[in-house]
Computed example of a mutant assay.
Amino acid sequence: MSPSIDRHHSDWLLLQRDGLSMAGASYKRGVSVHAPSTVTIDLNRPCSAYDGLAGVDDLTLAPGAVRFSVLGDDDRSLWRSPALHAGDAPVPVHVPLAGQHSIQLVVTPVDGYWSTGILADWANAQFSC
């Protein structure tokens, strides 16, 4: 059984997308959310790593910034991005997962009101299990 999205906490939708764009580059697959957002993924088996990209979608017109985080069991921080704005290059995500049963993909607004219009992308996710 592969990792599965268990639940989504947000006032906005989780959009699974084929084809998205960040900083002018296209990515084949990913999910898009608005800040604030938390997506919990149950690993369903032992996994050693999560890899992907995190960034602001090119459809974003809002001037704010968001920060991406990956939390493990017991809400322990496993990875955190710098603040990202529209037009910034996406950042690579590499998170060791040894001993984790689930992870949370978290997007947090940095600039308050302006950040709620940002479309945040988690792209090209790959689990090593």
Results as ranks from 00 to 15, higher is better:
46 P>T: 14
89 A>C: 00
62 A>Y: 05
128 S>E: 02
123 A>Q: 03
19 G>S: 10
117 G>K: 09
91 V>W: 00
14 L>V: 14
79 W>N: 09
62 A>S: 15
102 S>Y: 07
97 L>H: 09
118 I>K: 08
61 L>C: 08
84 L>R: 10
23 A>H: 07
119 L>S: 14
79 W>M: 08
2 S>H: 12
19 G>P: 06
56 V>F: 01
64 G>I: 15
126 Q>S: 11
67 R>V: 15
60 T>C: 01
101 H>W: 01
114 W>N: 08
73 D>N: 15
43 L>N: 01
74 D>Y: 07
14 L>F: 08
34 H>W: 08
44 N>C: 01
127 F>Y: 10
88 D>E: 07
118 I>M: 06
105 L>Y: 02
3 P>H: 12
46 P>W: 07
105 L>H: 04
12 W>R: 06
5 I>H: 00
61 L>V: 15
96 P>A: 13
95 V>T: 04
26 S>F: 07
78 L>M: 08
80 R>D: 02
19 G>W: 06
21 S>V: 14
89 A>G: 00
75 D>K: 12
78 L>P: 01
4 S>P: 03
4 S>L: 14
84 L>C: 03
16 Q>G: 08
26 S>R: 15
63 P>R: 11
8 H>K: 08
39 V>K: 04
87 G>T: 10
50 Y>T: 10
26 S>Q: 12
108 T>L: 10
4 S>M: 13
127 F>L: 09
58 D>K: 13
40 T>V: 12
128 S>Q: 07
42 D>V: 13
98 A>K: 14
92 P>K: 14
39 V>C: 03
17 R>E: 13
44 N>P: 00
119 L>C: 10
43 L>H: 02
27 Y>A: 11
75 D>H: 09
8 H>S: 05
15 L>M: 13
55 G>L: 05
90 P>L: 12
79 W>F: 11
23 A>Q: 07
112 G>L: 05
112 G>T: 08
57 D>F: 01
69 S>Y: 02
82 P>E: 08
66 V>M: 06
67 R>C: 07
89 A>I: 06
46 P>I: 12
87 G>Y: 06
67 R>F: 02
20 L>P: 00
12 W>D: 02
113 Y>V: 15
